[in-house]
Nucleic acid binder design. Sequence first.
DNA 1: TAGATTGTTAATCGATTAACAATC
DNA 2: TAGATTGTTAATCGATTAACAATC
Lengths: 220, 220
Amino acid sequence: MTGQTPLPEATVTRLPLYLRALAQHADCDTISSQELADAAGVNPAQVRKDLSYLGSNGVRGVGYRVGPLGELIASFTASHKQWPVAIVGMGNLGQALVNHAGQRARDFVVVAGFDVDPRIVGSAVEVGDGTIEVSPIESLPQVVADTGATIAVIATPPEPAQQICDLIVASGITSILNFSAAPLVTPAGVHVRHVDLAKELHVLAYHEQRNRLREEATVS
Amino acid sequence: MTGQTPLPEATVTRLPLYLRALAQHADCDTISSQELADAAGVNPAQVRKDLSYLGSNGVRGVGYRVGPLGELIASFTASHKQWPVAIVGMGNLGQALVNHAGQRARDFVVVAGFDVDPRIVGSAVEVGDGTIEVSPIESLPQVVADTGATIAVIATPPEPAQQICDLIVASGITSILNFSAAPLVTPAGVHVRHVDLAKELHVLAYHEQRNRLREEATVS
DNA sequence: TAGATTGTTAATCGATTAACAATC
DNA sequence: TAGATTGTTAATCGATTAACAATC
């Protein structure tokens, strides 16, 4: 059922959008690519193409059955599983991620939190169903082994990020979400996603700058 | 100096990386595309192509002069300016962004913060140099007008996001960084960047799922 | 001059989307 | 059958990268 040929990266990033859109249409029996596209904010042709990669299951002239389609997509992202996540850096950002996983992304369970700050280490953090105790960063290999975490989030300043990344990789984790500004170097086979807040703001600043210049040009 | 033809989006997203890499090489006189590429984690040919869009200023056989190149890039991202930012949603994520702007992204100043929670509204928040008071969401148009904010960050749950977005757009802001899971609809001319935590985690989960299936296949 | 490195071209790649035959 | 909507093809687009002539 869960395909052999890897899906295009771009398709993978859209599957969660489709799941979310389907959840909003849980009361419907079927949904067309047009409706799905509207709800997800993408092109209907793109929806059909993406879904065809999963092994198409729509009905011509009718649309897609909401229930089965949801299950099909879930079988690819394995979103029925409870993915155990470790968060390194339990400052405001780390805390925000814990809350997010607990309240919104129910397929992910935060099973471990790490920090270097002695004022934070040892404190209890509520994670969805239970509570975890923030561990010192040195204990990462042991705690990851104990908890079986397979996804790690780096929510630290950029300086220690590479070192922490090495530690994470050495502990056997193969998927990393990097919120530090540092560009991480990892061995092949490790998947890294990078979210860079400063970069996002800079891109917006570029567009603001252009708007401003364009206005000036229009005036003169 | 600051070009007429818009730069490719992909190039714009890499300019901050180059600025950061140049800062690390402030002690050098010149830097080659190879060195710059290593520091930024990209391909050297890509570096040269990107920089050529800015109006090339390298010296064949030598490389790029670190100082002037930094100024050239900064003139495009306008990173010497102090961009006034408004943050809507002052929970953990909003707080994390305030800290980030204060400590890391010094080109951005948080000039306003908003929330609906009466326990948060009215509280003081340290932002880099000074302090701001968290305002109720209703006062957004007035506060934006007073502070001159041109970039807004949405750090709220998805439910009120579209409504807040409309309010932001109506107040004249043209650049939005959206951390809510909601796909926002905006009029043409408004620039929206979307960072979706759940989506990032789901993409990693997809890869974990594939790894697991591959291992099973190898065993049998 | 010899060595190094740029700036640019052309090939390649992946993603997007319009269009339409297939078919419910 | 008539109308609707899929699944797939082919065109288009933008981004990446290898290669190399230009030139310091």
